[in-house]
């Protein structure tokens, strides 16, 4: 049954459980490592959550619509290269900040064209794009990292308004914008109806193709915004940029209670899922677990959560795999 309270920050059982899991993880890691429970480390965790949170918001919309995009990480990478090049060319900082979302939205448009116009299942279409984009990153970087980029975007992170960094404002605004679109506009209703059943949505007179295009473009723009933040804080773009981001995003969103089959989602859950994932990754690293193991933890969590959902009959399962009710 759907959560009927839909306030902008209201919590349901799943979200309270996540909150408890985050708290528990914080307590365990604080005991296990003297470096974990410091203000500096908390800031690091929040800092490391920014890109994942933005990409996760887009992924929440995609999954709620019954879609998916496994190429988001690489889309962020491509956008990051463009942001980096703009920085190198000493473009105006405001324009540079906009390069990310614009490139991301354009790539989202390409994804939509492939998946919607080509009538290809989203997971397969975006997997194909993932392969193409990965090579594109290779070619664009010419085998060399972008590193030591100019500090043109540091204002984005450094400037404060009323004592709160501009970056925090941008993230809160992105969250509110996605929440409003999902819960307060016809677009959100249409998206959820498509996630429930594309055929029924069509019979109800919903412009299905238009909504699917819009969702892929929004998700792309959010990945592009993530690229702006990425370049602003690391000032380099490496060859492997974003390679585990799609996995992290899907895991965080599914942890948060969004249905992998579509039709049901939680934005608060996504925020908590992102935080839990980043806390676990950070805590394990501080306990001396090599970062090589991070995708194992993420992948294991994703499979674990889905298995529990299948066993508790929240998700129906057919002998052939996923089935619709």
């Amino acid at each position: 049954m759907r959560q009927l309270k839909d306030g902008i920050f209201s919590l349901n059982g799943r979200e309270l459980a996540l909150l408890a899991a985050c708290t528990l993880a914080i307590i365990v890691f604080s005991v296990a490592s003297p470096y974990f429970g410091t203000p500096g480390n908390a800031a690091t965790i929040l800092r490391n959550s920014v890109e994942l949170l933005l990409v996760g918001l887009g992924m929440t919309l995609l999954l709620a619509m019954g879609g998916i995009d496994v190429s988001v990480g690489i889309v962020m990478g491509l956008a990051a290269i463009c942001v980096g090049r703009a920085l190198e060319a000493n473009t105006d900082p405001v324009l540079t900040a906009l390069v990310g979302p614009i490139i991301g939205a354009l790539l989202g448009l390409v994804t939509a064209a492939v998946v919607v116009l080509g009538r290809i299942p989203a997971i397969v279409g975006t997997l194909g794009l993932l392969g193409i984009y990965r090579t594109a990153i290779f070619i664009l970087l010419g085998g060399q990292w972008l590193s030591g980029l100019p500090t043109g975007l540091t204002v984005l992170l450094g400037t404060s308004l009323l004592g709160v960094p501009i970056a925090a404002f941008v993230i809160v605004l992105a969250y509110i914008a996605v929440w409003v679109a999902l819960r307060r506009t016809p677009f959100g209703l249409h998206l959820l109806a498509i996630g429930n059943s594309e055929e029924k949505a069509r019979l109800s007179g919903i412009p299905v193709a238009k909504v699917r295009f819009a969702t892929f473009i929004i998700s792309g723009a959010l990945a592009g915004l993530a690229a702006t933040f990425y370049v602003a804080s690391y000032r380099n773009v490496e060859m492997t940029i974003g390679s585990t981001l799609a996995l992290d995003a899907i895991a965080a969103v599914v942890l948060g209670g969004t249905s992998i089959l579509g039709g049901k989602c939680s934005l608060v859950g996504t925020v908590l899922g992102v935080l839990l994932l980043r806390i676990l990754q950070n805590g394990l690293l501080l306990m001396g677990v090599p970062s090589l193991w991070q995708p194992v933890v993420t992948g294991g969590l994703l499979i674990g959560v889905l298995s529990v959902e299948v066993l508790s009959a929240r998700l129906p399962m057919s002998p052939l795999g996923w089935a619709r009710r």
Binding site: R184, P186, G205, G263
Partner: peptide
């Protein structure tokens, strides 16, 4: 052709929602 995940009133208006435009954003 009803969407089980939406409410009764959302279903009744689905595809023809009543909305008001605030700064160009169509609010339900």
């Amino acid at each position: 052709a009803l969407s089980e995940n939406l409410t009764i009133s959302e279903n009744v208006f689905l595809g023809r929602e009543l909305k008001r435009s605030v700064l160009g954003v169509p609010f339900l």
